[in-house]
Amino acid sequence: MSAVPASTAAPDDILAVSGLTMRFGGIVAINDLSFTARRGQISALIGPNGAGKTTVFNCITGFYKPTAGDIRLTHADGKGYVLQTLNDFRICKVAKVARTFQNIRLFPGLTALENLMVAQHNALMRASGFTLMGLLGMPGWRAAEKAALDLSSYWLDRIGLYDRADEAAGNLPYGDQRRLEIARAMCTEPALLCLDEPAAGLNARESGELNELLLSIRNDRGASILLIEHDMSVVMEISDHVTVLDYGVRIAGGTPQHVRDDPKVIAAYLGTDEETAIAVMEGT
């Protein structure tokens, strides 16, 4: 691969989902879904409530084993991973897919800083010689710990929580917790960052800050982001590509502009919630 910045280069696919099907008993949550996410771009997965968005996420990040289908991830160096065959923790450790959760799952009793340190577990485990070298306080371990602290500080600074680094995560305001969870996922140095409704519960100002954060993650670090979102202002403003899901089936896909004008999408949203439908159409 050439060294051209990802955002300007012809983007290749980092994630390719094909024929994904997930059944729970007799209920088909996702039916033969195919879509792709491009490297260095922000891809969004939208759809009305119960469309199966989170289920798709859980399949990608290994919390569910899909009934059928194929989820392939390709790193920038060309290495490929078949995600549905990997164990849950390996998806993050080996394939480098990190995620956040719809209802925030921080470690509430640990400090913000500790949360970010936990995210660097695998790198630190190696550096600590799987605990033994660390127990003896070897210099190699000390250096690695310092580097991990630096990375954590960098991200705390990026999300504006540097001053509150030593506060318990559970004590932080809601919006800060959302950003901290994203920073924690970024600390695993992911190839693909999956965000499950990152703007849920945020007010307009916080939502704006989130947009900036996500755009900067994409622009500065060339990260690829896949997000599920209800908040259309987020989706329309920052997504490069949108996939629309309804009843577990892909009904549309393309640029935000393109999707917004798609009559099928409008119908899907109108069928559930008028306000959202109007929001989709007006692109607010």
Binding site: F101, F107, P108, G109, E114, H121, T131, T188
Partner: peptide
């Protein structure tokens, strides 16, 4: 890291798995 992973596991096992 091992000790932090223990405490993190106490706080939230699912989040631990998501962090590899």
């Amino acid at each position: 890291p091992i000790g932090r992973a223990w405490e993190a596991m106490r706080e939230d096992e699912v989040a631990c798995r998501a962090l590899g």
